[in-house]
């Protein structure tokens, strides 16, 4: 079923929108959640909640890209869950490690906190400035939260090289945000 039809089902309050979403994007959403949480149970619960969020968001929302729309919901829910996870489960996925890395990108500025929409645009401009290879590696690590090993396998390069690319790109992001006057 094409995405437009699935979105129409949501707008028509037709419950088969849920099963169509699950069939088409369930595996994708699960991989996003699993990357962050590293736990099938937690990941599956986030995916289940994703459909409910989507059901509540449509209507009125009409996403242009259903796949990434659902993926973004799953990612946010998974980050919420990562916050709540008990000490025992913490660190099972890549979420905790990624959070430590991302702390290095925080610009050293002290002005008033930048609005979220402006921050997003600044990050988009930063991504546009990268080579396709670097951008994909950055997005795999900080959007999908793949492990360094997985990225190395995916792009056929050594783990050390991936780490170096990520390290340099984090520094570039920090400088880019500082240059744009972003304060977090």
């Amino acid at each position: 079923m094409d995405d437009g039809k699935i979105v129409e089902l949501y707008h028509a309050r037709d419950e088969s929108a849920i099963s169509a979403s699950a069939e088409k994007y369930g595996r994708y959403c699960h991989s996003v959640a699993y990357g962050i949480l590293g736990n099938h149970e937690d990941a599956q619960e986030c995916v289940s909640d994703t459909y409910l969020r989507a059901w509540n968001a449509m209507p009125p929302h009409r996403p242009g890209n259903l796949r990434t729309f659902l993926g973004k919901i799953t990612r946010n829910l998974s980050l919420d869950r990562l916050d709540r996870l008990s000490a025992e489960k913490r660190g099972a996925g890549e979420g905790t490690a990624v959070l430590e890395e991302i702390a290095q990108c925080i610009p050293d500025t002290s002005a008033e906190e930048t609005d979220g929409a402006i921050l997003k645009e600044a990050i988009d401009r930063f991504l546009a400035s990268l080579s396709a290879e670097t951008r994909k590696i950055f997005v795999r690590r900080y959007w999908y939260m793949d492990s360094v090993h997985e990225i190395a396998v995916r792009y056929g390069m050594g783990e050390s090289r991936v780490k170096v690319i990520l390290f340099r790109t984090r520094n570039r992001l920090r400088k880019h945000l500082e240059k744009e006057g972003i304060t977090l």
Binding site: G64, N65, R67, T68, G71, K72, R75, N76, L79, I102, G116, L119, K120, I123, D124, L127, A132, R135, K136, V139, R140, Y142, W143, Y144
Partner: peptide, 13 residues
């Protein structure tokens, strides 16, 4: 904020 990046970059990766 990175989670909200442009869809095309998510698809590309």
């Amino acid at each position: 904020a990175i989670g909200d990046i442009d869809d095309r970059y998510i698809e590309e990766a």
